[in-house]
């Protein structure tokens, strides 16, 4: 954490990205972009350990 704090000056003035009337802090923009990236990965990446279909019927084996 100390290393991260050394890399990023948390005491400085915040940076903003502005386009016309639209303004967003750089920190918030990074969070939004990371969320979009996580969403895209969640939709595209294959879920591990479920190559074979999990049939609900297979569970009922007591009868």
């Amino acid at each position: 954490m100390a290393l991260l704090a050394a890399l990023i000056n948390l005491d400085g003035r915040p940076h903003y990205v502005q386009s016309g009337w639209f303004q967003i802090s750089l920190a918030n923009l990074i969070v939004v972009l990371v969320m979009i990236a996580v969403f895209a990965l969640a939709v595209t990446l294959k879920f591990p350990g479920h190559e074979e279909p999990v049939a609900q019927e297979e569970v009922a084996g007591d009868e």
Binding site: L41, A42, V43, L45, F47, H50, P53, V54, V59
Partner: peptide, 15 residues
């Protein structure tokens, strides 16, 4: 439940 339908095995269902 112990099981879910096959389509639930996707990362988007984890959130």
């Amino acid at each position: 439940p112990d099981t879910q339908p096959v389509y639930v095995a996707s990362w988007i269902y984890v959130f």
